[in-house]
């Protein structure tokens, strides 16, 4: 059975950032998009075009491959073993989506809310899907 991944369709995105609020609300105990594990931003580029900056984990596996300490494992989601993670930040550098951050020397990565994907549930028009 194929693993589900987060998928983003920019035509349906209105830039509400409810996804980032959902993520931080579930993981941080407050609404703080700057700490969300995904980042989607819709803005006018000099007023002439809508541009969308999307940073969403799609389970590409590069962080798992690049981690020198085998702290990252991926099955249906990314898991970080904090006992093995040294805070070297190589995963932050190598992640093509730029969605990994370091907090107190530990890698913080999207965990699909254990399959619940609250970002998907709060997306008003299905720009984010988990399939």
């Amino acid at each position: 059975m194929a693993v589900k991944r987060l998928k983003f369709q920019k035509e349906n995105c209105i830039g509400c950032q409810l996804c980032m609020q959902a993520c931080s609300g579930m993981h941080e105990g407050a609404f703080i998009p700057s700490k969300a594990r995904l980042s989607i931003e819709s803005y006018y580029d000099k007023g002439g075009d809508i541009k969308i900056g999307r940073h969403v984990c799609n389970l590409c596996g590069i962080c798992e491959k690049e981690c020198p300490f085998e702290a990252i494992t991926i099955d249906e989601k990314v898991s970080v073993d904090f006992d093995k993670c040294t805070g070297c930040s190589i995963c932050v550098e190598k992640c093509p989506q730029h969605v990994i951050s370091m907090r107190e020397d530990k890698a913080i990565i999207c965990d699909t809310c254990d399959g619940e994907t609250w970002c998907v549930k709060l997306c008003p028009h299905g720009a984010l899907k988990f399939e």
């Binding site: 609020q21 959902a22 931080s24 609300g25 579930m26 105990g29 407050a30 609404f31 700490k35 609250w118």
Partner: peptide, 16 residues
């Protein structure tokens, strides 16, 4: 920064 509510997880679930 953050906006703090009574129970953010409960709020996310209810808002969905």
């Amino acid at each position: 920064g953050a906006v703090t509510v009574d129970d953010s997880k409960k709020m996310v679930r209810k808002i969905a």
